[in-house]
Nucleic acid binder design. Structure first.
Lengths: 317, 317
DNA sequence: CTGAAAGCGCTTACAG
DNA sequence: CTGAAAGCGCTTACAG
């Protein structure tokens, strides 16, 4: 019994030949150790929980894919718990995960500046936050929205655009403010930022508004997300204004279903959520193994995805 | 020790007062039984696996939500494993789940007529299929696409449309053929079904084709999915044809991001994937508890979601 | 170098 | 009605 255990785990001392023989027989009979029993001893279940309030999955799926990809090689499986914005449901899921002795919990959401509706600050297991606001001394991963916005505006400047407008979502969103600031810095704040909602219709309305008011028209639009960008592109086309010849439009999110189906397909900023998930997963692993991890907020760079809505060339910088 | 166990599990015989006292103290010290230890004895881990090859999450997320909702009350947590179309990755995930002693596996995908790239037929745990093709004697849940198509066409007839065209996806899809057949039965097959691809651009092209060719124009379009419907609506608007006044358009899938953002918002058929997930979860539970479950394919009815792209009234039938 | 013993945190017969 | 004993499937000191 114990010899078998040591042979299979490559621990203890024994004859090479004995070890090999054990391994061979084990694989012949298809022996697979019971992870529950192992977990009982080792205090590690090789299981983590992913908690999210993003029902729609827009942000959670890429994060989940990254987490899973990072951990599958280490034999770690992940419980996905969608808790909506229901504190009671959140509590139930957290307790269920704790009962199952998860090695840690990754919290993720749909907004950088909102907490999940459940308190994760005094759990007996490590917690990592990804794309949701963490507690003061936690480890948090988020996208660098300012850098993403800079990427977009710099690209527009680089391809020769000079009158760049920023049409975006509600000012209450932290990421909206951050992107708007970066926009103003890079573009110069000739025109005030246009705040609205996260929908195609706002993109439409914004174009309406811009073309109705007097004054010079923009030659480029930096939109706060792909839906707004799509609405704007459609509205421009309906006015007979050519995208990208007359006006360049750039989005944010790289939400394939929106960005790729727009005519022309949107150049946009990708927040690299999968990479964010990968790093969160790796960090969780470190924590679970007791390795030290610096607390704090880590901003991950965004990436420009060039399609056809801006004109210009391949991405340069 | 054993008294405590029996008290908390409401098993064995003991004084009510003793039982209460144990429970009270347990909750005072915040005692929570270790699920790993319990699982070791009971042979149940209160854990199941959800296997999917639908990376995008279009179909998996609602199914997952339903599964989770059905099982959370029973203390069951779910491992989500996205395996793309990679057989090796699928194998790894299945083995990881088996090692962790899952009580069962639910397989889900993105097509009714495709298998996951991993063999689930000889597992030591029960398997339920949802929205993916199962093995011959398995339990499989799927949407009733014929009924969904009937719902759509009958609705168009009910609001007075007579020349209904069907623009849909690739004929290789089983669900495409099933919907097309139902369409032909209900609408009469005056016009041949137009097969294409699952994209907005095909919706565009179809309108182009229809309006270019001679002959009477349709007064209604039944589209194979919401993307095609959206493309068609956009193309009609660009031709100055009014939706729904001149032409009614109906989609399939009720993919919010597409259906709700179309102008006007799409009337469409919802496959009730969340309910499908719920039933798959409940069935899994029955199997895990050893209750008998009839093998076979269960078709779940679709539901018509009325928005504004058809005109007409509230849903009747 | 190998194997008997103890123990992880519970539950379930079985004596008392 | 209560508690000591055995055991779920492993791993880890510790004798031999």
């Amino acid at each position: 019994m114990s010899t078998a255990s040591k042979a299979l785990n490559n621990t203890g001392r024994m004859g090479d030949e004995t070890r090999e023989r054990v391994k061979r027989v084990a694989s012949e009979i298809g022996f697979r150790p019971n992870a529950l029993a192992r977990g009982l001893l080792s205090k590690r279940s090789f299981t983590i929980g992913l908690l999210t309030n993003d029902t729609y999955g827009r942000f959670t799926l890429p994060v989940m894919a990254g987490v899973s990809e990072a951990l599958v090689d280490h034999g770690v499986s992940v419980f996905l718990c969608a808790i909506e914005d229901d504190p009671a449901l959140g509590q139930i899921h957290v307790e269920a995960m704790l009962d199952k002795q998860v090695d840690g919990i990754i919290a993720t959401g749909k907004r950088l500046d909102r907490r999940l509706p459940v308190d994760l600050s005094n759990l007996p297991v490590p917690v990592v936050y990804a794309f949701t606001e963490g507690t003061p001394n936690s480890v948090t991963f988020r996208s660098d929205d300012a850098q993403g916005a800079r990427l977009a505006v710099e690209w527009l400047l680089k391809i020769g655009r000079r009158r760049i407008l920023h049409v975006t979502g509600p000012m209450e969103f932290f990421s909206v403010r951050e992107r708007a600031e970066a926009y103003s810095e890079v573009a110069g704040d000739a025109e005030p930022v246009m705040y609205g909602i996260w929908s195609e219709s706002w993109g439409h309305d914004a174009i309406e508004e811009i073309w109705q008011r007097p004054g010079e028209k923009p030659d480029a639009l930096f939109c706060g997300n792909d839906q707004i960008a799509r609405g704007a592109v459609d509205a421009l086309r309906e006015r007979g204004i050519k995208v990208p010849q007359d006006v360049s439009v750039i989005g944010f999110d790289n939400w394939e279903i929106v960005a790729a189906q727009t005519r022309p397909p949107l150049t946009t900023v990708d927040m690299e959520l999968k990479e964010l998930g990968r790093q969160a997963g790796l960090t969780m692993l470190a924590l679970a193994e007791g390795r030290p991890v610096e607390p704090g907020v880590r901003k991950l760079p965004c990436r420009l995805v060039v399609r056809q809505s801006c004109g210009g060339d391949k991405p340069g910088a």
